[in-house]
Design a protein around this nucleic acid. Structure first.
Lengths: 220, 220
DNA sequence: GACTCTATCGACACTATGTCGATAGAGTCA
DNA sequence: TGACTCTATCGACATAGTGTCGATAGAGTC
């Protein structure tokens, strides 16, 4: 939606230099990929499909991207930007109203997953074979885990949350749970938590894991 | 280890009838597959690799199995049997000593994952493209989830665990967490919980989610 | 010795990937 | 204006994998 290949020369995810006309084609490929990913899995999309969708021949595709994975990585860069923008801000609310803070975090995660469902599913798929995609995923996880770890430590420091296992390890487990529960719910592979309840279920698990009660308050 | 293709005519996972000599070859293929899966991913193993490993030509492979996925499914059948055997029994201990019960459940899950790491990783991979493998995975999940749901409901019924969200939904979330945390720990893709701590971390999350305390007792 | 069934493979058709070399055209400049 | 460069393009090829068809060797009846 907000992709702009002209601003920076962009760190060479396959594309040569950047000059006028070619950017349109690059965008055509990305748009085609995004559209096709909403219909079928990455492995079921051939490079020929992407090329045809963008109105070019298969060899020409390679002028713009090194591979299918390179296209996905560029799509993932957009996601990174949007998430980066959405994530900042809410951190102060933790002090005032912890339950509300965590609910908003989880709801935001849910929204992110829902919005980018098809591209994220493709990232999971491609992660099995592409080291670069795997890298993107672990960087992304690291960001959420770090945020969670800091929040848990802050709550323990002010006495709202009791001590317990290493905060980082809990953060890893809770975020892993989010990933796979939301993935199942949104892609519809059973058994899954119904979409209407998923945030509340996750919230229950997060709160009890962190506070050892489902109703923590700001009163230390 | 305990595979026996002769006992039952086996429900046609690709193999024709069952007669003397061919069973050896079928087993050769399975052994080759299991061995190669410990070195590399399913997508990096060609049917030719399996055929050569079993000392036959590629067309002959198709005499024994419909596809690579069919081989994997037969490998997964072994896993099912072993897990089925390991899982029974422990259920009574829940009344006496809940913490011990859950710790043993989680430790058993950890062991299962560790023992069958390579085959289970292949199942995750193949699940993206094969409906049958996906089916196997969801059946397997269903078993664990049902067990967990029953245990949670039992604890709530006798008053050891407080009421809370639908037991089945919690069971789905907790089992999903297990899957993905153990997967990361055992395959080593960071960020992951260290192998030495993983059972205790999961235990903490399970106990607090179910009991809202990290130290539940049998005293109602 | 004719007949059947298992097990085997060579050869083919198909699909997808990735590369090489030729080339058309737009922009530069001497 | 013509020589020169760079982007963008594609046809044709090489390669690797999958799945099928038809032929056939041999073991076991009868």
């Amino acid at each position: 939606m907000t992709y702009d290949g002209t601003a920076t020369p962009r760190s060479s995810r396959g594309r040569r230099a950047s000059r006028p006309t070619g950017d349109d084609r690059e965008l055509d490929i990305l748009t085609t990929a995004a559209k096709l990913l909403q219909e079928r899995a990455l492995s079921e999309i051939s490079i020929d499909d992407l090329a045809r969708g963008a109105g070019i021949s298969r060899p020409t595709f390679y002028f713009y991207f090194r591979s299918k994975d390179a296209v996905l990585l560029t799509l993932l860069d957009r996601v990174t930007e949007e998430i980066g923008a959405a994530v900042t801000g809410t951190f102060d609310r933790l002090r005032e109203d912890p339950v509300r803070y965590w609910r908003e975090c989880l709801a935001a995660t849910h929204t992110t997953f829902a919005t980018h469902r098809s591209v994220l599913a493709a990232a999971v798929e491609a992660g099995r074979t592409s080291a670069e995609v795997r890298r993107w995923r672990s960087d992304m996880k690291e960001i959420w885990i770090t945020r969670t770890t800091l929040a848990i430590e802050a709550e323990r420091a002010r006495g709202t949350a009791p001590p317990g296992p290493r905060a980082r390890d809990l953060a890893i487990a809770l975020n892993a749970m989010n990933d796979s529960v939301l993935y199942a719910t949104l892609t519809g592979d059973e058994p899954a938590v119904p979409a209407s309840d998923v945030v509340e279920i996750l919230l229950h698990t997060w709160l009890t894991t962190i506070y050892q009660t489902a109703r923590p308050t700001s009163a230390a």
